[in-house]
Design a protein around this nucleic acid. Structure first.
Lengths: 249, 249
DNA sequence: AGAAATTTCCGGTAGAGCCGAAACACTTCT
DNA sequence: AGAAGTGTTTCGGCTCTACCGGAAATTTCT
């Protein structure tokens, strides 16, 4: 199920990954990093260029805007993206912080869109950025509304830790999820990025199926207890409006 | 040079293209469209899922946000993107129309970023959208500053026509490029999309190498002769500011 | 339930990917 | 300049792997 019956495709994307990671590369460079013969890498790069997903300038190979295109097409097809788009702007404006839209994909939280408030810059928030569900507020907001069995199998699995504050105890996480369901929004305090506080509300559709989460992030210093509650209400309201929107898009 | 020595990679991306085009697909559906045995397509899809670039929900396969991620990374690494980002916002606000940033990639014009003015919606302008250079204002703006020999070999080649107004005569194009160089900005009148007028200025760096183009588009009805000149000055100024920015990013 | 359609599994075989080695570019020394 | 070094591209034969037919399993429709 999880293994790949086609090595060439696998290696092809491994090269793409490598290019994306380092913003480009040369034949021998890639060959070394991927532990493949140079001539083989060369063959792959030629093919990738032919597909249009990779381009070369002189000796340097890079990914092309094709990825941007496919990515954007994908995003535009997601109902939730359209439904939440203007909400996100409002949230950013109202709170003055970074506002993001996330979805769950293959057991991870992925950022779909970012809207910047007048202040804040955040290097960790860009469309496509992914993170484990349990380490961040939007992830927990989503976990709280995923089917029981999926949550349990995730909590049974390995719970990685990314900062000193990351919660990795299954029981404490279960408690937190309960709190999210009661209160309506989730909070994390530097559990993914030290010094960064996130407040997030889950977005559900009319059948209560999870569709994503709306999240606001800012520096700890700016988000004290009362501010978090304020923001909690803002994201919750935005999530509710989205829920209604979802049926009319 | 242009042919692919690796069939598997080629076919893998053919499937990705197909998925991107139709927003997903099933095994037999793809098999029919690509004229491949179902079992083969099945093998490919399994591999693609393993790479993380494709996901499945039930029987339906789709592209993932991985493309968004790679695309955004690529974009952020482009100097011109950073240099022009806030300029684009200003241009959109000042003109009240759609403002876009384009670059040249493999002999095509590709949209990198879109900023919407208070009015306008434009379904044809999304990041990653690509078009032939000669059919649109930003394309001509860029053509006017590409190396002589590249321009000539392009003008020798096939010049496709996309609307009734598209200019496909090499000599007329040569004239237009000359005008662009003199005046500083390019205009197209429904040459790519009927009823749509575009005004674009090329972005050069300090060594006069072409880096991209800034473009403003709007409906013909709203953009009369004098308005176009106005916008021409706006995009030209934005391009100049960007040129300066480019050295300090 | 039965039938039809689709997906998934499996294994033998042909042919395609693979990579060593040599030829070829392009830099950087002496 | 010439030579040595570094990295790229071409080539071709061998081996392994992608390929696909067919059957089993699963889902969907009648």
């Amino acid at each position: 199920m999880t293994d790949a019956p086609n090595r060439s495709v696998e290696r092809g994307f491994a090269i793409v990954d490598e290019l994306a990671e380092n913003g480009g590369g040369r034949v021998s460079e890639l060959a070394e990093r991927l532990e493949m013969p140079v001539s083989t890498v060369h063959d792959y790069l030629r093919t990738l260029v032919a597909t249009g997903y990779v381009t070369r300038e002189g000796k340097e190979y890079r990914t092309t805007t094709r990825f941007l295109e496919v990515g954007h097409r994908h995003r535009h097809r997601l109902e939730i993206y359209k439904a939440v788009r203007d909400q996100l702007e409002t949230v950013a404006a109202e709170t003055g912080e970074h506002a993001t839209l996330l979805i769950e994909e293959d057991d991870q939280a992925v950022i779909l869109a970012v809207e910047e408030g007048p202040d804040a810059i955040n290097l960790f928030a860009y469309p496509g950025a992914r993170m484990p569900l349990h380490v961040t507020a939007p992830g927990k907001a989503m976990l709280a509304h995923l089917p029981e069995e999926r949550v349990e199998s995730l909590l049974e699995g390995e719970l990685v830790s990314v900062t000193s504050r990351t919660v990795t105890d299954p029981d404490r996480l279960r408690e937190q999820l309960e709190t999210v369901r009661e209160r309506g929004y989730a909070v994390d305090e530097g559990e993914r990025i030290a010094g960064m506080v996130c407040v997030a509300a889950p977005v559900l559709d009319k059948d209560d199926r999870l569709r994503g989460a709306i999240c606001v992030c800012g520096p700890e210093s700016r988000l004290d207890e009362s501010r978090r509650a304020e923001i909690g209400e803002v994201v919750e309201r935005a999530a509710n409006v989205t829920q209604v929107n979802l049926d009319y898009v």
